[in-house]
Amino acid sequence: MLNGSCLCGGVAYEVDAAPGSIVHCHCRTCRKTHGSAFSTVTNVPRDRFRWTNGEGLLRGFESSPGKTRYFCSRCGSHIVASREGRDTVLLRMGCLDTPIAERPEVHIWRSDSSNWYDPKDELPEWSEGTRPKPAS
């Protein structure tokens, strides 16, 4: 069982299925929607997905013909997207609360990617948001 929610906790969902292929999407609409270099997403069966809280808080935006992105009207978290006539729902992995073992498989829409991020760059990692203090 997968569980997910928005930043404020007002909207929540569950999926009685494993995630599908996980991808990092660099398309322009994902970058603009999330204000980031890419969005990490996976597909799950629509008939195994259900809202468990706050469905009334959801708002939708048709970002391209037939594709609607749904977000919480209170905190702005983009939670899912769906395409008309498809039997899957696209989960935004940043809203997933359940730990999973699966890992992303590919970067897609690299032709549309930002010029300031390259997934091949190796960067230092910090456990928190500030530079670690040097050992004395």
Rank of each mutant, 00 (worst) to 15 (best):
H26N: 10
D121N: 11
H26T: 05
G56L: 05
P132H: 09
C30Y: 06
D87G: 10
G56P: 06
E122S: 15
L57H: 05
L7S: 00
A81K: 03
L2W: 03
R86I: 01
T29A: 10
A81G: 15
R110D: 12
E14S: 11
L57A: 07
H78A: 11
E14C: 09
D16G: 00
K32F: 11
E102H: 15
D112F: 04
P99C: 12
L58G: 04
A81C: 13
S111G: 15
E62A: 11
R86T: 06
P124G: 09
N3G: 00
Y117G: 14
G66I: 05
T88G: 02
V106P: 00
A37W: 03
P65I: 00
D97E: 15
G85V: 05
T130I: 10
R46W: 07
V11T: 08
E84S: 07
S21M: 09
F71E: 03
C95F: 03
V23S: 05
G66Y: 12
E14A: 11
R92N: 13
F38C: 04
C6Q: 01
S77M: 10
S111H: 10
G54D: 03
F61H: 14
S36C: 08
T29Y: 09
L123H: 12
V23Q: 01
S111P: 01
G66P: 06
C27A: 10
G10H: 01
G129F: 14
S77L: 07
M1W: 00
E122W: 12
I100W: 14
S64I: 11
